[in-house]
Design a protein around this nucleic acid. Structure first.
Lengths: 162, 162
DNA sequence: ATAATTGCAAAGGATTTGCACGAGT
DNA sequence: ACTCGTGCAAATCCTTTGCAATTAT
């Protein structure tokens, strides 16, 4: 997301989650709410590890299996997207309905920058059409060195292999 | 690759590998040659599993650790690229120098179609520039249903989650 | 009460690694 | 000879799962 995560937005996300839970006759639990909450409040791409760490600050007894399960649940509910960047760990981002963005991943510091480009999207559609391919979704990632790392002269040390 | 893999091309790849081996003072072994050979002869995106199976037809005693090590070696030599599509297994493709292509992945049959689009590449460069980002490489994948699967009416059953 | 959820530890799948043996230079 | 490569099994990493105990409805 490019915007700040407001309290209003966090509440809206919780409401969407509650709706899903009700619809599927699941249960609202302390852990779920806490995990979802830390997740809803970030605007970054968190690994399970990171979500676990944040969740434990709220609720010491969160187990990692529950984090895995809760993030899958959020993904099923359409509230989270699972992504894999260069390394092999799953990362989750909040899924904003009708938002389309791609990512730039800094090979030096690991930072993930979101960007949008409608022209590229359009060309993807044409490329798919040209191959008789029915496009469902896409993934575009640019790997390189972010502005900060270039300035800090850290362009060389790639921590990330993409 | 869009072209057929000719004998000339296979030889050229072996020559490049030999050069790398000499340069790094490594050794040419039966297994390496066999694994590299089956790999050089395909034009698809093989998993370790698949390379192992093919290599064993040539040389029954190839161990899977050797396949892992050899494909890493080929990647280091600049002859192979490691990629991850929707599932979690690494796939390797022959790296054609100065060839740029992206992939369409069929969610129904798993087929991988390569395509090129210079316009998209150009837009990526501008997008990166706009963020002060030094672009090193990119990854673009379109997920959907290929022409064959659409005709066969298999558009619904996604075997692949992207 | 009933059924879903949790936490733990065990199981899984893909990949990596340590080590003694075998092969290339 | 000397060093590198191999195969095997064990180890590792991330993720999933079985199960008994706990909690929400």
């Amino acid at each position: 997301m490019k915007f700040k995560v407001t309290e209003r937005l966090v509440e809206e996300r919780h409401r969407r989650l509650d709706g899903y839970i009700r619809e599927k006759a699941l249960k609202t639990t302390r852990q779920r709410t806490d995990i979802a909450d830390v997740f809803f409040r970030t605007s970054s791409h968190l690994s399970i590890e990171e979500v676990l760490e944040l969740a434990r600050k709220k609720n010491r007894k969160v187990g990692y299996a529950t984090v895995y399960r809760t993030l899958k649940l959020l993904a099923d509910a359409g509230l989270a997207n699972e992504r894999y960047f260069g390394d092999k760990v799953a990362r989750y981002e909040v899924n904003e309905t009708n938002e389309h963005h791609d990512h730039m991943v800094c090979l030096s510091c690991g930072k993930i920058i979101e960007f949008e480009n409608d022209e590229i999207e359009k060309l993807q559609v044409s490329a798919a059409k040209a191959h008789g391919f029915r496009l469902v979704k896409h993934r575009l990632e640019l790997y390189g060195v972010c502005k900060d790392c270039q300035q800090a002269g850290k362009g060389g040390q790639f921590i990330h292999s993409a």
